[in-house]
Structure formats: structure tokens, C-alpha cells
Design a protein around this nucleic acid. Structure first.
Length: 784
DNA sequence: CAGTGAGCGAGCTTCCGCTTGACTT
């Protein structure tokens, strides 16, 4: 068979006769290594052709005929591929086995004008000689129905994106965007934010007790919690008074075996979540680390929705686990993907060589690798077996019960290697050992404590949590999760932010001996770190889209069209018919919305200004959210004040709005210049003689800051600046101590001190020379 | 970086999914 000869490295005639084209250059390299140098393997670097970037690129009047072009940055790849293909006898199109991969193969055959006679479509799921040879033995033709499903997907996304975005430019603000995926992501965040903002917490009391007993001259104590939450302080007080007068005994003691099962191997989404929880990485950071590990050959492909492991991986995992922990710890498990819309073109994310427990790479890459290694092996390990004991303790003569539970590990199984984590707040310590209590045994209380608790709103989304939710809804793909999150931030719809949290008072009743003490203590709540929070613009855009295009912004829209794409892929639905049906419903709504709606400013009337009696409103103005007192007209000019970062139009009160007008304040004069207090982009500040002095946020309030305190801040800052000066030469050249070490500054430009020179001993002449010969260190550019 | 809030209007912005650089700090 010529095919087999072709991949036989011994057959010199095979040279250049066969070319395999794959999507990724790293994959191409690996395959080339496996098949030997005689075989040519090229990469397409993903799609080589797409709709025009600027124009719609769809001839709607010609039955939605797409107008494909080779983008500028892909021309080099295409011309190289053309050259490589020109003298090949057979071209093997080996792009991924999914919708996009099939389309890539089709575009390649079109653009490279491949002869169907000498073109073969193959797919393989693992990169081993055996798998590739097997694939080569089973070539097929390009599946045009699958390609059509991709074209439908592409055209639909373009129509939605390029018709909705201009509506936003006209009705909200230029350069905004909307799309099937990003707009739903923003909707998730806006709706979650509203749930939190309008959450009305309920209070209840959590009652815990510490019991004690003696046995064989040993003292034991046991912490237990009341099975029922109590609603009111009255109820709690009555209960504690009852407890004071009664005794306690162990009513029941039950032990049952439980088992824990390891989590499946990583997909893109679960890797992003786990790297976020365990290592604190953002999704794009995780992906760039994974990319580097992949390119270095340490892990398999990192953009995947599959939890499947190859036979090879299963076998090496078993050996590896056996070597490390023994046979009892192995358990071969095959996982099936259950997430919506998964296309399974790749394996799960796993180490290429499971016997390598670490790799030489950067610290962060190493950590990520080790996480992947542990997770992969753990997925092939035995369940952990535990024994869970629950003790029920009853106050005599009461229907209430306390319970205490403990867990002991009988067999650790996969827990030897991997601790699963979850998004839920686990403030409770893991249950551990229980002291040796017996059924019927009498217990005494050391203390019984009732602490007021508040019900919690749902948590805000982290980047990784949003990815998880999107995956559940089938929205977006492994290759787009990270970019989508960047896009919605770039558009200003959401921001990654911290929230300091607030304090609140909680009541606590403590029964000790025969006394009930009532205390009040404070707890902080609502503290958030690095969460995605919608902005005012994000909220206004979302509400507008939900109002006029609910069917597209709907959480089920993607699932619905995916069903139709599947029918197209099956050959039972014509793709242009599907698009036509969609477009005839969609397009008129776009036109109608442009015609019938006003500019969306999200205006809210907050009330009347007590001083002027004018109306106070908040809205999105030319430069962003602004409070306005009065309406323009009749020679009257409204007064304006910008909202501060983090203030939401939706929840802004009249008081908060009016407070914005109390700044900037002129609080006096110093050295012949006035002192102004205001709040800027970077927080509250004092301005004096063109210089800015930050006001410490925790200790001072800009609204009440006194002249004396302002002077202190100015003097302090001056002293600190003085300390920074290492040298101050005559002609304005200074050597300063900066955050990252000493540097030279001259005419508002900074210069690095070359290696080998000491800042303390620098002379004026040396500095001049450095300035002359070196470029200034560039300051951060505003846009990026 | 620390403000702005008149009005006109030319020319621009934008989608989702495949893939990596080639650039900075």
C-alpha cells in the first residue's frame, strides 16, 4: 500500500510526497519527530481564512453567501503552505475533528486549490505513531455538512455582532460591542450584582455547645451544634435558661462508611477554576502558562473540553501510581464529558509524561504543571474511604438535639495526592476525630453559645467562576473563555475589583455555669477580592439589550442554535435556510430599535436639591456617569459632578449624590497658594501649588479634612520626598530612591543606573553621560 | 492622573473561534 510506504522512514522516495497539515505548530513538531524527518508536517496556525474584518462580509442578497478573505497576517502562512503543497503527491488534512477543524480543512482545500484526488482528510486523537498510522489508513473526504454547520455558526455570530454593536453606538456610546457570547456573560454579571445589591439578609442564631466529660482520669471535650437554627433572641434565651437547669446525654451514636471520588482530569474550564482557587491565577495568566508548558512538550493541548485520557496515558498512570503508592491505590477510570456543546477534539489536559512529577520551568509554570500532574494521577486512583460518626446529644426533657460529627480516613486513596476544592466558603474546619463517647453517656456543658448570623447573598463571580457558568450554559469555547473575559473588561462593561467589606454588629449570648452573658461584637462581611463587577455602562447596555433583544441575550439562545447547527451537520437542515429564518426575525427588530428608541442614558431621578429646589438626576453623560442638578434651558445651567469609581447609578442615594458637590473644597492658604481637597481617579487628595498629596483613606475623610491636617499631610510627603533624594545636582539632575531601586531623573524623564555603578557615589558628570547615552525609561502608555 | 457637561460632524468602532507570535514592563 503506497500509504504505508509513505510513512516508512526507510523509503527515501517518500520525501516530499506526503504533507500533513495540522493546526498547531507545536503539534506539527511532535508529529514530525514521530514520523521522521522524511515526512513533511506543516501547520496552518488555526483558521487561514475568515470574513472581512471591516465589512459585514456576507452577501445577504445572494442567499447569505460569505465573502472570505485571507487576512494580512495569514498571507505568509498561506504562501508557505502553497509552496509546500505544490510538489506533494498527497496532502493529508489533519485538523481537529470538530466543526472548526473541518472548516479549516475545507478552507485549506479551497485556498490551496487542492486536487480532491490527492487530498485526504484524516483525524487522530493522540499523537503516537500507532494512532497516526491508523488514521492514515482510514482517510475520508471533507464532510461538507459539518463545514456548513461552521459557516452557519460564523455567519450567525457576524450578523448578531455587526448589527447589534452599531445599535449601541447610536443609542449608548461609540465603540461598544454586543455579541452572542459576551452579552450573555455581561448579563450573568449584572443579574448577580442585582441579586447582591437588593439582597435582604435574614438573621438567625447558630447555637454551639462545648460539652465535657471525664473517662479514666482523662478529660475530654466535644463541640456540637444545635440541629435547628433559632429565629429570635427570645427563643434563644428561653432555650439557654432551659439548658442551665437540665442535663445532657448522648442519645445516639452512629457510624457509617462514606467514600470520596477523585475529580476528573482537567479541561480548560476546570483548569482555570482550580488554578484560580489553589494558585490565585487569573484565567488568561493560567492560559499563557499552559501555552508555554504545551510548547515545551510538558503537557497535552490546553484548549479542550474533553476529560478523556488516551490508552497510553491510562497505562502509564497505572504504572506510576503503582510505583509510588502500590497496587491498592490504582483504579483505572474512563471519564465522559457531560458539558453542553462539547466537541471533544482533544484529550483532557494532562502531563505528556506522567512519570515526571515536576518540570524545569518558571516558578508559576512549575506550580501549574504540578497541579495538572496531581489531578491527572488522582483521577486514576482509588476512592478514599472514610468513616463518619455522628453523635446526637439531647438536653433532657427537650425536643432539641445537638449533633457533633467526626470523620476518620480508613483508606486515603486519591487524597494522598490531591485535595479537591470548591467555590463554597469553607469557614468551618474539616471534621476530625471525636472523643470516645458512648450511647447513653451523661455530659456536662462548659459553655453554650448562640451567635447571631446573617443569611448570605450569592457570591460575586471570579473570572474562573464565570467561565464555569458559561460552560454550563454552553456559551463560548475553550479557546474563547479568556479572550471573552478580556473583551467585556476592555469595553468597560465590567471591572475586576476588590471590595473592602463592611462591618456589622452581631449579638451573642453565652451560657457559662449559671450565667447568661449577652455581648455584641462586630464582624466584617461582603469582602471580595478580584471579582468581576459590572459598571454603570455595563448595566445600561445590558438592560437595553435585554429589553429589545431578549431572545438573543437569552441564556438558552446558544443552546437553541446549537441544536440547529447539529441538524445542519447531520445534513438534515440547509444552513442558509436556517440563517434566513433567523435573520428575517432579527433584522426588522434591529431597524425598529434604531427607529423607535431614544438615547439610553440610564437616567434616574433621585429627588430635589434642598438648597435650590431643583431636580437631582443621575445619568450617563458625555464623559461617564454624572449627577446633574437642574435641567438646562432658560439661561439656566445645571451643575454637574462625576460619580466616583465604584458608585453605581442604580443604588446612588440623594445624599450620596449631593455629597459629590461638596468637593473640591478650598480649605485655606499656605505659602501663598490655596489648598484644595478633592477626590480624583486615584482617591482623595490635597492639591497645593500644582502638587498632589494623597489623603490616607482609612484615617482621614476629605469632606471634613481640616487645614491643620492638610498641612501635616503636605509636610509629611515633603519629608518622605526628601528622604528619597540621594543626590541633587545643580542643573536639576537628581538621583532618587524609587520603589525598584535608585534612578536618575531629569526634566521629568527617568533613567536607569547602568549595572556596576553605585548610586551613592555617582557624580554629576557621570549622570550627564548616562542621560546622554541612554534612552529614558518609558512610562506606561495610557492605552493597551 | 487629579477635568470635563456647546454643538457640528468625518471617520471610526463591532462578532466568535481556530492558532501563535512580536511587541512591551
Amino acid at each position: 500500500m503506497p500509504v504505508i510506504n509513505a510513512v516508512d522512514p526507510k523509503n527515501r522516495m517518500a520525501e516530499k510526497e506526503n504533507i500533513i497539515i495540522v493546526e498547531s505548530p507545536a503539534k506539527a513538531k511532535t508529529i514530525e519527530r514521530i514520523l521522521g524527518k522524511d515526512f513533511k508536517v506543516k501547520s496552518s496556525f488555526g483558521h487561514i481564512r475568515d470574513l472581512s474584518k471591516k465589512k459585514l462580509g456576507i452577501h445577504i442578497e445572494k442567499n447569505f453567501e460569505p465573502d472570505y478573505i485571507v487576512p494580512e497576517e495569514k498571507k505568509k502562512v498561506v504562501s508557505e503552505l502553497k509552496k509546500a503543497v505544490s510538489d506533494a503527491k498527497t496532502v493529508w488534512l489533519a485538523s481537529d475533528e470538530d466543526r472548526e477543524g473541518e472548516a479549516i480543512a475545507w478552507h485549506l482545500s479551497e485556498v490551496l486549490k487542492l486536487d480532491p484526488e490527492k487530498t485526504k482528510r484524516i483525524v487522530f486523537h493522540e499523537i503516537t505513531q500507532q494512532a497516526i498510522l491508523r488514521a492514515v489508513e482510514q482517510p475520508r473526504e471533507i464532510n461538507i455538512s459539518l463545514v456548513n454547520a461552521q459557516q452557519a455558526r460564523r455567519v450567525l455570530d457576524r450578523l448578531v455582532g455587526f448589527e447589534l454593536s452599531p445599535v449601541l453606538w447610536k443609542k449608548v456610546k461609540p465603540a461598544l460591542s454586543a455579541g452572542r457570547v459576551q452579552s450573555v456573560a455581561v448579563r450573568l454579571l449584572v443579574e448577580r450584582e442585582r441579586e447582591i445589591l437588593f439582597f435582604k439578609p435574614d438573621t438567625y442564631f447558630r447555637v454551639t455547645a462545648i460539652f465535657y466529660f471525664d473517662r479514666d482520669n482523662e478529660k475530654y471535650s466535644l463541640k456540637a451544634e444545635l440541629s435547628r437554627r433559632m429565629k429570635t433572641k427570645k427563643e434563644v434565651t428561653e432555650f439557654l435558661n432551659f439548658c442551665m437547669k437540665t442535663g445532657f446525654f448522648v442519645e445516639n451514636l452512629a457510624t457509617k462508611p462514606v467514600k470520596r471520588t477523585p475529580p476528573p482530569p482537567f479541561t480548560t474550564s476546570t483548569l482555570q477554576q482550580e488554578a484560580n482557587r489553589k494558585l490565585g491565577y487569573g484565567v488568561s495568566y493560567t492560559m499563557s502558562l499552559a501555552q508555554r508548558l504545551y510548547e515545551a512538550g510538558h503537557i497535552t493541548y490546553m484548549r479542550t473540553d474533553s476529560v478523556n485520557l488516551s490508552e497510553l496515558a491510562l497505562n502509564t498512570a497505572r504504572t506510576q501510581i503503582k510505583n509510588m503508592f502500590g497496587d491498592a491505590y490504582t483504579k483505572t477510570r474512563k471519564y465522559r464529558t457531560k458539558s453542553k456543546g462539547a466537541q471533544e477534539a482533544h484529550e483532557a489536559i494532562r502531563p505528556t509524561y506522567l512519570n515526571k512529577d515536576t518540570v524545569s520551568a518558571s516558578k508559576a509554570e512549575k506550580k501549574l504543571y504540578e497541579l495538572i500532574w496531581k489531578r491527572t494521577l488522582a483521577s486514576q486512583m482509588e476512592d478514599a474511604r472514610l468513616e463518619k460518626t455522628t453523635v446526637t446529644i439531647t438536653p433532657k426533657g427537650s425536643p432539641e438535639t445537638f449533633t457533633a460529627s467526626g470523620e476518620i480516613i480508613v483508606f486515603d486513596g486519591f487524597l494522598k495526592l490531591y485535595q479537591a476544592s470548591s467555590d463554597e466558603d469553607t469557614t468551618e474546619a474539616a471534621p476530625g476525630f471525636l472523643p470516645p463517647v458512648e450511647k447513653g453517656q451523661e455530659l456536662l456543658y462548659k459553655e453554650i453559645r448562640a451567635t447571631e448570623r446573617f443569611t448570605q447573598p450569592p457570591p460575586r463571580y471570579s473570572e474562573a467562576a464565570l467561565v464555569k457558568r458559561m460552560e454550563e450554559l454552553g456559551i463560548g469555547r475553550p479557546s474563547t473563555y479568556a479572550p471573552t473575559i478580556s473583551t467585556i473588561q476592555q469595553r468597560g462593561y465590567v471591572a475586576r475589583e476588590d471590595r473592602p467589606g463592611e462591618l456589622r454588629n452581631i449579638a451573642e449570648l453565652i451560657l457559662k455555669g449559671t450565667r447568661i452573658d449577652e455581648k455584641s461584637k462586630t464582624e466584617s462581611f461582603g469582602k471580595e477580592r478580584g471579582k468581576l463587577i459590572p459598571t454603570n455602562i455595563g448595566i445600561v447596555v445590558n438592560d437595553f439589550l435585554v429589553k429589545h433583544f431578549e431572545d438573543i441575550i437569552n441564556y438558552n439562545f446558544t443552546a437553541t442554535v446549537e441544536k440547529q447547527f447539529d441538524e445542519i451537520a447531520q445534513g438534515t437542515l440547509n444552513w442558509t435556510e436556517m440563517i434566513r429564518r433567523f435573520y428575517t426575525g432579527f433584522h426588522p427588530k434591529v431597524e425598529e430599535t434604531i427607529r423607535d428608541t431614544d438615547k439610553q442614558t440610564g437616567e434616574r431621578i433621585l429627588g430635589k436639591d434642598p438648597e435650590s429646589g431643583e431636580e437631582v438626576i443621575v445619568k450617563i453623560g458625555r464623559y461617564g456617569p454624572v449627577v446633574q442638578i437642574g435641567r438646562p434651558g432658560n439661561d439656566k445651567k445645571p451643575r454637574y459632578a462625576s460619580l466616583r469609581t465604584g458608585q453605581l447609578m442604580e443604588t446612588l442615594s440623594l445624599e450620596e449624590a449631593l455629597a459629590l458637590f461638596r468637593l473640591p473644597r478650598n480649605i485655606g492658604e499656605f505659602e501663598g497658594h490655596e489648598i484644595i481637597v478633592a477626590i480624583g481617579r486615584y482617591g482623595p487628595y490635597v492639591r497645593h501649588n500644582g502638587k498632589f498629596y494623597s489623603i490616607p483613606v482609612n484615617t482621614d475623610d476629605p469632606y471634613t479634612l481640616t487645614l491643620e491636617r492638610a498641612l501635616e499631610i503636605i509636610v509629611e510627603k515633603r519629608e518622605a520626598e526628601k528622604k528619597k533624594i540621594i543626590h541633587a545636582f545643580d542643573d536639576g539632575i537628581k538621583v532618587l530612591q524609587g520603589r525598584w531601586g535608585p534612578y536618575i531623573t531629569f526634566e521629568k524623564k527617568n533613567y536607569k543606573i547602568p549595572k556596576g555603578l553605585k548610586a551613592e557615589t555617582l557624580t554629576c558628570e557621570e549622570c550627564k553621560k548616562i542621560i546622554k547615552e541612554n534612552p529614558p525609561t518609558s512610562r506606561k502608555t495610557k492605552k493597551s
